[in-house]
Amino acid sequence: MTDRGTARLAKRIRAFAAEHGGSADASLSHLGDSGYRLVLVGADGTWGDVVTRHRERALAAAESAGVPVHESFDGEMAARVRTGPYEWSRMAGSQVGGPANPPAAS
């Protein structure tokens, strides 16, 4: 896929990599009917993601941005991720005084 949507997605991926150490790695996950999630890990350990309905678009955008896509979010990639207080409080949720998850939209 080399359409405008792929180009926009590639631009977002390149911007993420540039902002977080100049490079990034990615892992692709299927979200069911929602599409595909490309989890990005920057060279500085910051993580982010982009979501698209098309697997081919995610892969083409990552390739265009020069970001390698790993088969899985393995231990090596996960070990590079750096989390801050926000992520820890969200993971803890209301069990340990973190913010409650918002209610599901109807």
Rank of each mutant, 00 (worst) to 15 (best):
A26Y: 06
S72G: 05
L28E: 07
L40D: 02
S72F: 08
T83H: 08
Q95D: 12
V81G: 02
Q95H: 12
V96A: 13
T52H: 15
A43M: 03
A62M: 01
V81D: 02
P103I: 01
Q95A: 14
R37I: 06
G48M: 08
S89I: 09
E71S: 12
H20Y: 07
T52A: 14
A24F: 08
S64A: 15
A18R: 15
P102R: 07
A92C: 08
D3A: 03
R55W: 02
M1V: 09
A79W: 12
E56L: 11
A24M: 09
E71H: 06
D44E: 04
S23D: 14
A7F: 05
T2V: 11
R53F: 05
A24N: 00
P85T: 11
K11E: 13
D74T: 07
G42A: 04
K11P: 00
G32R: 02
P99V: 13
E76P: 04
Q95C: 06
S106W: 10
P99R: 10
W47H: 14
H30D: 13
T83P: 03
I13T: 08
T83Y: 06
G5K: 09
V81A: 05
E71T: 11
V67C: 04
A104S: 13
W47M: 12
A61D: 09
S27H: 07
F73W: 03
F16M: 03
L9W: 01
A58T: 04
S64E: 15
V81M: 10
A15V: 09
S23V: 00
S64P: 00
R55G: 01
P85K: 12
R55Y: 02
A65L: 05
H70C: 05
E63D: 15
A26R: 06
D33N: 08
P68T: 04
A43H: 03
M1H: 13
E56Q: 12
D74G: 14
N101P: 09
G98F: 00
S89L: 12
L40C: 07
A100D: 13
M77H: 00
E56A: 15
R14G: 04
G35R: 01
R80A: 15
R4N: 14
R82L: 10
M77D: 06
S27T: 14
D49K: 13
R55E: 15
A26H: 06
H54I: 11
G98S: 03
R4L: 12
H70M: 05
S94V: 08
L59Y: 01
M1N: 08
L38S: 03
E87K: 04
A78W: 06
V50N: 13
F73Y: 15
R57Y: 05
G98E: 06
G66W: 02
A62E: 01
S94Q: 10
R4C: 00
H20W: 03
